[in-house]
Amino acid sequence: MSYDDYLDAKPVIVTAALTGGVQGKEAHPDLPETPDEIAAAAAACENAGASILHLHARRDSGERAFSTERFQEVTEKVREATENVVIQHSTGGTGAPDALRAEPLRTDPAPEMASLDMGPLNRYDRLTSENTRATVRMLHEEMRERGIKPELEVFNDGHLNESLAIVDELDSPPYFNLIFGSGTLSVPHPRSLQTMVSHLPEGAEFNVLGFGRHQLPLTTMSIVLGGHVRVGLEDNIYYRKGELAESNAQFVERAVRIADELNRPVATPAQAREILGL
C-alpha cells in the first residue's frame, strides 16, 4: 500500500464493475443487465485479468433489483461462467430501504466480498443516498456474521473519517475503495488521491475508482502508488472522449496492459485472496 509496493512489483488486483445501479442500456446498449449478459461479461473480464467482479442485479426492464432471489440468479450464472474469480455483491441502493440493502448478502453461498457505502452522497437534485451510521453498522454486522469481507466505499474525505473510526473492527487488512468524481464525491485530481492515500492506516490495502474520464488517469496513478484498480461500465461508459467502450473486458485489458508496462503483475484470484485475507 505504498510506492515501495510499486517498486517491489506487488501484484495489482483488477476489479471489474460490470453493471451498476445508476445507468443501463439507455446509456450504453451493451451494458450487461440480465443474468446471462452479466455472466458473459464476467467470463470475458476474468479471461482478461480481473480477479474481483463487483455485481449488481436488475429486473428484466433494466430497473434496479435488490432481492436475494435475483442476486442468487446472477451469482449462480456468474459462478458457472467463471473459473475462480472473487465475487463481490453491491449493497448500495440509493432510496431503497435498509432491509432490501442487506438482501444481496444472503445468497447461498455468500459472496466473498461486499461493498459497504461509508456515508451519505447526493444523487440528482433531490435524492440522497443516506447511508447512516446505523445502516452501515447493520450491513457490516451481517457481513461479519456471514464471513463476507467489506470493501469500504469512500466517496469523499468524510467517509474516510467514518472508515477510520471502525478500522479496529475490521479483519486485516482493511480494504478501502477511494472514489473520485463530481458532486459529493472526492474532487477528481491526483492531489486528492495522494492526500487520501496518506491518511490510510498502516497495512491497509486500497483500490481506486474514478468516474468517467477520471477512470484512466487515477487508476493508473493507483498502480504507481501501490494500490489496486477498479474499471468497468458501471463507472465509465467511454473508452476515450466521444467513443463508447466496446465492453467491460476492454477496460480490463487496458488496465492489465498499463500494469504490465509499469512492471506490476496482475494478481490472480488466488493472489487477490491472499492480499485481501479472504
Binding site: G21, Q23, G24, A27, E63, R64, G95, A96, L127
Partner: peptide
Amino acid sequence: VQPMRADICAGRYGL
C-alpha cells in the same frame, strides 16, 4: 429513464 431514477417514477421505496 436511468434505472435509479426509475424507482422514483414507479413510486418504489417511498420515493
